[in-house]
Design a protein around this nucleic acid. Structure first.
Lengths: 335, 335
DNA sequence: AATAAAAATACAAACGATTGTATTATTCAA
DNA sequence: TTGAATAATACAATCGTTTGTATTTTTATT
């Protein structure tokens, strides 16, 4: 690989001049800059960013830690972050935790040891609190949390207005005439899920309905666990579920189907995340959209500006067949 | 940040001894190794991988270039590659091209300048040939192409048996009784699509059916373009389509629906890629699965072993409602 | 033309590790 | 105890840049 020393030798100047010429310093004569640039092109020189960054104590790499890259929410969030970061000259190193604490610790160590410029992360369900994050990253590597955040940690945060969104989703179910509405609430160590449960509760109480704790199910974000929980909910006489995820909502729909119930007439379901399958399936599933691309953009922006506050990205309820007993303003794609 | 020199100073030894102690060289006394390790832990030392790699002329980063990270195929391929690479101590730097030639060139430059250990890539549709890849990467950075490959380039390649898969898919349509089968063929500058078209042709000819070039549509991989092409196909009396992608196949189904046709009775569709929505929608769409996770694994494996051959990953036809006129061995999830 | 000021370049030390070679300390045999 | 062999460590160069300081060259001023 050709280095600045090669260029310097070929031109009879020193590496420092070449370096300054290539980085456009006013300390080199226009004439020599031209000569350097031509020689660089002739020799096929390309700056070694690793060496450059080492010397400068900088990095052009931003680490992103997510539970699973193939989850649409996260791949879209990564896409959003990348669109901003690439434009600012950064590259993106991606780590998956598969929802496991150990993998998260390993990912954090890896990023720290690679001296990344910053870390954008959404913590694993297996992470109970953020102490390991702080401990590993220290205060040298800026951290931006998105979606799943530990609010006790310093640094910027990007979250959805989960409480408000879940409130709207539940209210929508109430307005559609459902009266015994349960929820698949997810994991309570995640503030996002906790906030959704909160919104669900507020909506019920705000409408004079009581919260029946026997149809509030925890730790149910997979299709399988959603199915099981929904079966129990049905036995308890539940007529609708607000689900804190789309896959468990899918499980809920399957459970209702397996009992011969019609959707939405006999049983209503609203999921969360607006995974692409929700709009394509039949009945099309109502879902609370998270806007992951925008969250990724905001997280990247927060990293670039260094602002420390909490950005709240609005959620949007997509009303589709699975919850629209009375109206049908959003028919399925195939209607 | 604490360095080996800090440890050395604290212990009254030289940095070289510390370095050797930490990397387990037999040239340091067991006793000093222990002292070094303890001091490292006490000071909270973490090796600077950037500096280490610069010195060693190595890198722990493998670049992956894909058109779009949020496409399920690619996010799964990345996941597969990552599972192998992480286990081998590598990290993954991801670049998206958004199918654009310019972005691909930029991504290749970025990876080269970051002196990555290798590049795993699936080229953009906007790339007409692989000359820029070779030119930028040179022969120092190993290249593994997957899915979309330029066979004229050196280095390992991982592809699907596209011809065989498309052959099976088309034969399946024939066996189901369709007789005027067209295809949405995709982009012919991609060898994968070209091979699928080949398999389609062979299946028709092998069954004594002729290939009607008026219902072979090119450059149609989006839902929208698939819809338009399918409308033309229907006017030409086409009764089934083998589609080289799932999104254009979705467009085809929508086109048939818009004309009041029943699926699969009046019109059969098989897509390609087995995107997750295909199994969830109604009618469930038949699709030729690509096995992206395995492709990613194979690509990573090829990089690690340095083997230069071409690995062929088998495709698997998922027979679902959209193409099963006579039988229905794979009912939709909600049947 | 002499001198000060400014411009351009050279020199050399970093960044944080690794590694070949030289040096010192230890062990062992005779 | 001396010397050779070996173990352990120190020294110093290096990876490819960047950058503060020193030096040389050029320009401007009188």
């Amino acid at each position: 690989m050709v280095t600045i020393s090669d260029i310097a030798a070929a031109l009879g100047v020193t590496p420092s001049t070449v370096s300054r010429a290539l980085s456009g310093s006013p300390r080199v004569k226009e004439e020599t800059r031209l000569a350097v640039e031509q020689m660089a092109a002739a020799l096929g020189y390309e700056r070694n960013i690793v060496a450059s960054n080492l010397r400068k104590g900088k990095s052009d790499i931003v680490g992103i830690i997510v539970p699973r890259i193939h989850r649409e929410f996260f791949s879209n969030a990564i896409g959003g972050a990348e669109s901003i970061l690439n434009a600012a000259g950064y590259n993106v190193l991606i780590c998956q935790t598969h929802e496991q604490f150990d993998a998260e610790v390993k990912a954090l160590r890896t990023l720290r040891n690679n001296r990344v410029a910053g870390v954008l992360m959404s913590h694993a369900i297996g992470s109970m609190d953020g102490s390991h994050i702080l401990e590993i990253l220290g205060d040298r590597i800026p951290l931006v949390q998105f979606d799943r955040v530990f609010s006790e940690l310093p640094g910027a945060k990007v979250i959805n207005n989960n409480a408000e969104g879940a409130y709207q989703a539940t209210k929508h179910l109430i307005e559609q005439g459902y009266r015994h509405i349960g929820t698949l609430a997810g994991y309570m160590n995640s503030e996002a899920y906790a906030a959704r449960l909160d919104g669900y509760r507020k909506a019920l109480m705000g409408s004079g309905l009581s919260v029946d704790e026997s149809i509030v199910f925890y730790d149910t974000i997979l299709r399988e666990t959603g199915f099981d929980a929904a079966m129990k909910a049905l036995e308890a006489g539940c007529d609708a579920l607000y689900c804190a995820g789309d896959f468990c909502a899918l499980g809920a729909i399957q459970a209702a189907r397996s009992r011969g119930l019609r959707i939405p007439e006999d049983f209503g379901v609203v999921g969360t995340a607006d995974e692409s399958f929700t709009a394509l399936m039949s009945p099309a599933m109502s879902s609370l959209a998270l806007n992951p691309f925008e969250m990724g953009r905001q997280a990247a922006r927060a990293f670039l500006t260094g602002e420390e506050g909490t950005v709240v990205v609005p959620m949007e309820l997509k009303e589709r067949e699975s919850s629209c007993k009375t109206t049908n303003n959003n028919p399925t794609l195939y209607a």
